[in-house]
Design a protein around this nucleic acid. Structure first.
Lengths: 234, 234
DNA sequence: ACCTGAACACCGTTCAAGT
DNA sequence: ACCTGAACACCGTTCAAGT
């Protein structure tokens, strides 16, 4: 029995579904379950960001008190790990037979990056929370498989998949906070625009390039990592 | 006048020092200043991590109420940005004339990574807070200069420095949380050890490699990025 | 086994009032 | 100009008491 067998997960998430039928007297209020809690939490995360996600708000949305959640979840950190994996459900792992390994590799990473970009809260979560759960595992396995097809094996592949994730996650977070807040990234940009050219000559000369590029920049970064890994194998 | 001229910064950080002398009646209690607040905050961050850093605790350590801090700092987010730059003060930018660009590049990134590793709170901060301030700027300028010496210019350099920082920061954060908590990283390791070999064959076969390597792994990652950038220029 | 209320020990930020 | 106290609107987690 493994902790991440998909059946296990499903069973884990729906722990209390068996008992619904016997509760005929109060059909209006859904009974709690880990699955329901995580789905509610993800909804809040999408709408209000990571700082807006709290046990108390989840409880309120579920029309109960915060203490009720602790039957299904050990603490807020554990909840976040579940929410992250749940949020990665929509990352596309396309699997057509004649796809080229490199295209598929870049596509899945772009899909991952887009998923995070679309809900900045998930991006923030991905940055600080270790990837646990079936969706994360499926992605990692998929990427390792494509790297393998491209001739990158064993330690290089193991370390490389981490590096690719780090990069995609950080870029998504950066771009997401750029679109959302506005202020934080904008004020940084303004600062660089007026940097002292004698003290920081190269920064000053590259002040535009340092902030340029979106998807083109992301693809360039992936290419850098991949080319680097191939180069290191020689 | 530029926002990050070093003189400006010093003046900014010591705003109220001029007025000390006139306060002869209460010499026991230091008057507040941005510099004092940021230094106190950094001390708390080092000892108690990012979650232990709060306006209220800083105020308590300074023997005042939390509202007093808002004279010197707009909000907690701004304070964090200052604290981060202050925490990067000890990163070594060695500048001997006959140093090789690549050695110097790797050394400064390793020094950065070590600084974050030694206080996990700073690593956590670096992950989510944009680098503002003279220490961050000096590091970026230094790295751009070494990349330039290595033949990496303009857009490649501008995008590359970002990529190098992302990598160093993430590795430091990962390694720091591994040493501190124990639990989060350990439970992930245990999970991977018992992953279903039929469902995730490659993960299963690489379960050791996925967690192996420390400084060796970090250097490998830097080499990957650098080799990739050089390759992309051809 | 699950749910609830109340409590404990915290947060960031504001604002009127003082010097 | 700076500092203070008190208040407002929040947090995560625990625990005895209920069903």
């Amino acid at each position: 029995m493994t902790p991440f067998d998909k059946g296990d997960w499903k069973r884990m998430m729906n722990k209390s579904e068996r008992t619904i039928i016997s509760r005929r007297s109060r059909p209006a209020k859904d009974p709690l379950s880990k699955d329901l809690i995580v789905r509610t939490a993800l909804e809040i995360l999408k709408n209000q960001g990571l700082s807006g996600l709290s046990m108390r708000k989840i409880a309120k949305d579920l029309d109960t008190g915060p203490s009720s959640l602790y039957v299904y979840v050990k603490n807020v950190q554990e909840l976040r790990a579940y929410v992250l994996d749940y949020g990665l459900e929509k990352v596309v792992l396309s699997d057509n037979q004649d796809g080229h390994w490199k295209d598929e590799l870049f596509d899945v990473l772009e899909s991952y990056q887009m998923t995070l970009y679309e809900s900045p809260g998930i991006a923030e979560l991905a940055l600080t929370t270790l990837p646990i759960g079936p969706n994360s595992l499926a992605m990692i396995e998929y990427i390792l498989q494509r790297l393998h097809a491209g001739g990158i094996h064993s330690t290089s592949a193991a370390w490389g998949v981490d590096q690719l994730f780090i990069y995609a996650t950080s870029v998504a977070f950066e771009q997401a906070s750029r679109k959302q807040d506005g202020t934080a990234m904008d004020s940084l940009y303004v600062s660089y625009q007026s940097v002292d050219a004698r003290e920081y000559p190269i920064i000053s000369s590259l002040k535009e390039e340092l902030f340029s590029g979106e998807q083109e920049r992301f693809r360039w970064g992936l290419e850098v990592i991949l080319q680097g890994m191939l180069q290191m194998q020689k």
